[in-house]
């Protein structure tokens, strides 16, 4: 599959006379294949918006290369801009214009036919409110307008920076459906978000960023598999057999946590070995379930941002790959 978006070794340093320099992006890599819905995840201040801004030519990188739809950017931006629809960090609009005027002016600047304005207003559900001034819109309505402005070009690549910001549950679900529909029609969607359940539901692949570097990437199930710790839950026919089973498994070198009606095992390579071991002791397994990890847990582990009781984590305290950043505190939210 051809890459629609490629980033290699991207660097961006913000310099400030008072506070010195800050490496917002520190050799960041990213790749998105055509036709995917790609999730772009990272804690606050990890560099997501900076990446998207750089990609779209709004800020100047200090190093690295980027390509959009096979063209090197920022040089080829004028060529590809018509095929890349984007919203960057809850975009603002001129407050005294109506939604329709706002879109119609963008359509005019981008040589998009005027009928498209009505199409996108319909798509994002603003049809009946399009004659009102943006000033009077709620946060979620502004967000919808932003998505509409990005869709206006009918882009090949759609980049949305936290599009779920301010949306109601219905809106989030509609957005999810919309994105799936768009992806099915061949559009590639890159989506940064904090709502990990959302990302897990709609994304084919993800890139996770922490302190300006990539910490994980790939299809969602692969990322989950790589970071599942081999946790297994078993139940036996008779609850009274649990202590015997615990003893046998512990002797075999498996970490066991007891519960009233089941056992949790950690560090299991092959679930079959557990069945065999217990069968040899005449203990019969009634349920054996490998525990699926969810994206949120992987995210918290990879970025080392899981909350620790009694501590207030500061924004830049997260995983630094290849550096001396603190390792992730164990005891995240494993388990179902």
């Amino acid at each position: 599959m051809p890459a629609v978006l490629e980033i290699e070794g991207l660097r961006k340093t913000y310099k400030s006379r008072r506070r010195g320099t800050r490496n917002a992006l520190d050799g960041f890599d990213m790749r998105v294949d055509a036709g995917q819905v790609h999730g772009f995840l990272g804690p606050n201040g990890s560099g997501k918006t900076t990446t998207l801004r750089t990609l779209l030519g709004l800020i100047r990188p200090d190093g690295g290369r980027m390509a959009l739809l096979g063209h090197e950017v920022p040089d080829a931006l004028p060529t590809v801009a018509g095929q890349v629809g984007a919203i960057v960090e809850s975009p603002q609009f001129f407050p005294h214009f109506t939604a329709r005027d706002t879109l119609s002016l963008l359509a005019g600047a981008g040589e998009v036919p005027a009928v498209r304005v009505d199409e996108v207003l319909e798509l994002v559900g603003l049809r009946d409110r399009s004659g009102e001034r943006v000033k009077t819109y709620s946060l979620g309505m502004k967000q919808r307008l932003a998505v509409a402005s990005a869709l206006l070009k009918n882009p090949k690549l759609l980049i949305l920076d936290e599009p779920a910001n301010g949306l109601d549950p219905g809106g989030i679900r509609e957005m999810r459906t919309l994105m799936r529909t768009l992806a099915e029609s061949g559009m590639t969607v890159v989506l940064s978000s904090h709502i990990l359940g959302e990302i897990q539901l709609i994304c084919d692949s993800v890139t996770i960023i922490s302190l300006g570097r990539r910490v994980a990437f790939g299809p969602v199930d692969e990322v989950l598999a790589q970071h599942s710790s081999g946790a297994v839950r078993i139940r036996l026919e008779a609850v009274s057999d649990l202590p015997v089973a615990t003893e046998a498994l512990t002797q075999a070198g498996i970490r066991v946590t007891g519960h009233p009606d089941h056992l949790m095992l950690a560090g299991v390579d092959k679930p079959a070995s557990v069945t065999r071991l217990l069968a040899e002791k005449n203990l019969y397994v009634s349920e054996l379930a490998p525990i699926a990890v969810d994206l949120e847990s992987v995210f918290l582990e990879l970025t080392a941002t899981a909350p620790v009781p009694g501590q207030h984590r500061q924004v830049d305290e997260s995983m630094k790959v290849g550096g001396t950043g603190q390792p992730g505190p164990a005891g995240g939210g494993w388990g179902a």
């Binding site: 030519g57 004028p78 975009p91 603002q92 609009f93 981008g110």
Partner: peptide, 18 residues
């Protein structure tokens, strides 16, 4: 000035990068 301060300029540059 209003274009800059309301983000309209940024929006426009996403359409016209020159």
């Amino acid at each position: 000035g209003a274009e800059w301060s309301t983000g309209g300029m940024m929006n426009l540059l996403l359409w016209r990068p020159k």
